[in-house]
Design a protein around this nucleic acid. Sequence first.
DNA 1: ACCATTAAGACAAACGTTTGTGCAAATCTT
DNA 2: AAGATTTGCACAAACGTTTGTCTTAATGGT
Lengths: 342, 342
Amino acid sequence: MKNKRKTTIKDIANVLNITPSAVSRALHNHPRISDKTKAAVKKVAKELDYQPNHLASALRSGKSKLVGIIVAKTNSYFFSSVVENIESELNKKGYNLIITQSNESFEKECRNIDALLQTQVDGIIASLANETVTFDHYNKIKEKGIPLILFDRGENDIGVDYVGIDDYQSSNIVVNHLVEQGCKRIAHIAGYSHTRIYKNRIRGYKDALKKHELPEDEDLLLEGSLSIEDGRAKMEQLLKLPILPDAVYAAGDYAALGALQVLQEHNIKVPEQIALVGFSNEPFTSLVSPSISSIYQHNKEIGKLVAKQFLLRVNDKNYKPVLHKSILEPELIIRDSSRKLK
Amino acid sequence: MKNKRKTTIKDIANVLNITPSAVSRALHNHPRISDKTKAAVKKVAKELDYQPNHLASALRSGKSKLVGIIVAKTNSYFFSSVVENIESELNKKGYNLIITQSNESFEKECRNIDALLQTQVDGIIASLANETVTFDHYNKIKEKGIPLILFDRGENDIGVDYVGIDDYQSSNIVVNHLVEQGCKRIAHIAGYSHTRIYKNRIRGYKDALKKHELPEDEDLLLEGSLSIEDGRAKMEQLLKLPILPDAVYAAGDYAALGALQVLQEHNIKVPEQIALVGFSNEPFTSLVSPSISSIYQHNKEIGKLVAKQFLLRVNDKNYKPVLHKSILEPELIIRDSSRKLK
DNA sequence: ACCATTAAGACAAACGTTTGTGCAAATCTT
DNA sequence: AAGATTTGCACAAACGTTTGTCTTAATGGT
């Protein structure tokens, strides 16, 4: 049990009668070290089961090889699959991820940022909490010169890299599809318009209605939290209207699911009487019956782009004033809940 | 832009004309520092916006305040909610989590462990990949004296702390429930028996049948991957039997869902003709129709217990030979898919 | 064979803390 | 009031790397 001491670079140096610096350079394939020495060093390293001490190198070099992630909840399919793809890309380059959750709380988000900064992460990748409307805490990151990339829930005002889909266009696609299916009175169960992405979805919805010369009825646009319960409540509300909608476009899948439950409880045929479209392509959309049409946000692609963006930032020493905003085309996955025509 | 240098403990020392060591002790409320000095130090620290350098302290003290997590997939509800609870508990104590995924791959699991060890984590919390049948890589962790805790998918053979539910008992509860509902021919869509938890569920299932003096029919016990597709295939297989079962107990919710789809396609009434029970209480079980009864694994409780276990281990300097295995009582959430009696 | 290069490492400082020990002044004991 | 104890801090080493500079030996050119 005495054998606790981990082997260090010095141990290797002692064995070979060279200095620690030579060992370090050998392990990093520095050109000023002979191939013979490199081979010897690596051999001894293997034999002694040398494991580099990340902390020491991080301290000295200023690079921790850690990247902080902040999401609202890891337990949403969208977030977890984005994160999964970020991880696989960054692992290849020797980075590890520290994942934190804001639980949609502004205050928790701030605390997470502080914690990540103290851990000396090399960069931060985040998707904003719903509560977040001010951005000083993010500016703090920028001021420290630490790469910051937002995805999905971002904000255009702070100059920062962003990866997400075109929310405005999403609504356009949805409305086009519903019109094609013959719908003429399309309701929108929307997210709170103070959040940029939901605002854009609302804008897209309104403009698409105009394009098709459909009436813009105030009663058909309802903002909310997009939870299941919210979806149920909003659907109940819609069913009380004198003239029922013939389609409902929900800005979130859970809200769509709530709406579907209510529709079925009222024995309203979906999609025949009322068609339904959700947003995010959560796995359950394909599992319920009828399956729910939904907007696919290219989870994998987003993860990979975020990773690529981060690597670009972090590898370029010189301050780069050029911002990158990657906006992906959304894709509507058409399922039974909105397929009226065969 | 020159102001890049972060303020260190030395800067504070200079301002107050004391030594860095005094500052460090003051910040940690060391008893040998006067209250006056402590107050002064903290005041200056605030003014200079001092942020402790985690890396340096980690290097010196040997405690990184990082904990590694290894799960198969973060994007399962069970795992993500366990992790969420671990995080909230450990955050309170100043720990951050490095979350990694094995993707059910043995090799990835090994790589993750190496990565975590190099990052000098203070402990590792893991749930085994399906592929994992050998445990040398985990012994490596133990040999380094790093606390290791397994949850859900653990292994009894290696002496290591564990938190999970009583799988054997789960099956017992399920069978009891189904018998109560009047079922007499209960099938089990099982996981692969080389995994401990699935083996135990199978044992529990068999013993419960015996207890109720029900026939043990080979044809009613089918091992598989428990995916949706697997559930579908196994259900189709069951429906080909000369005598149909009147209940199906699936060791996973996705398999149960696949089974449900097939049953509905065959116009078999659930639960009237065949009752159905799943495992894990994934959110969708309450969303589909009929809603699926399922075993709840106390996700929150597991997370909190794991965290508590870890803190116990990590705070005790002296090697503690006593193992802790926390086995929780499973809870059956009864829903429509198995509720025949009112 | 002499000077200029280059190659291969040695040397030492540094990264920002923590921590064991030392030492003077202040406080307590009786 | 003299010794014993405690208080409050200084000093310096250490954690394991990385990295800029210096030194020596080998190589090259002519």
